[in-house]
């Protein structure tokens, strides 16, 4: 009897360990870091260029199915995500940030704010991204804050986002971006300006 119970316990424990480890490594457990993956890291902006392709490993496949369903393969678009500011602190809707950058090595780009569930935060501000068209050519900047700043051309609302991350989409990427991302891409900077009740 004791022997049977030992085997039963081994089966149950093994199944729990196997399932739990798979879900954890694939980023499918609640609270998992959405950006702790990928094979490309440019100044803290992380990406996995295998997304959408047959080369994607099972962990990437499972993560994409959950966090980035219907993402395009890298020949058409690449996606970088970051959840910390330039000093390595987690992004929070309690703070105000300056997002700034320049031209990107792609036909079109955008930066969009998502909450921890990988969804647009529940607000009605109609200000959740900036894209190449609005930013124009050359240097640009936007303010990320929970309330609209008084004198800012581009505002990205973090209202109701809590802890959030930013996704940089680069459509029609230049070949150099795919072959040498660290050399080709100067990603946006994220500078924390203040923190408090209204950021």
């Amino acid at each position: 009897m004791q022997r049977v119970l030992a085997y039963l316990a081994a089966i149950v424990t093994g199944a729990a360990i196997g399932l739990g480890s798979a879900l954890w490594l694939a980023g499918l457990l609640p609270g998992t870091n959405n950006v702790a993956f990928g094979n490309v890291d440019v100044d803290g902006w992380r990406s996995d260029f295998a997304i959408g392709s047959e080369a994607a490993d099972p962990y990437t496949r499972a993560r994409v199915a959950h966090h980035g369903l219907l993402a395009l393969a890298k020949s058409e678009a690449v996606y970088f995500t970051r959840n910390t500011d330039d000093d390595g602190r987690s992004l929070s809707s309690a703070c105000t940030y300056r997002l700034s950058g320049g031209a990107m090595p792609a036909g079109w780009w955008s930066v969009t704010l998502y909450d921890q569930a990988s969804m647009l935060p529940a607000n009605t501000d109609n200000a959740l991204s900036i894209d190449a068209g609005r930013a124009g050519s050359g240097a640009w900047e936007a303010i990320i804050a929970a309330a609209a700043p008084a004198d800012t051309k581009h505002w990205i609302s973090s209202r109701n986002a809590g802890a959030f991350d930013l996704t940089l989409r680069l459509y029609m990427p230049d070949p150099a971006l795919l072959s040498e991302p660290e050399a080709a891409l100067v990603p946006p900077r994220i500078e924390r300006l203040s923190c408090g009740e209204h950021g």
Binding site: I17, S21, A22
Partner: peptide
Amino acid sequence: FVAAAAHVAAL
């Protein structure tokens, strides 16, 4: 064995 099988199957 079960842990490895469950891991692969889940993925």
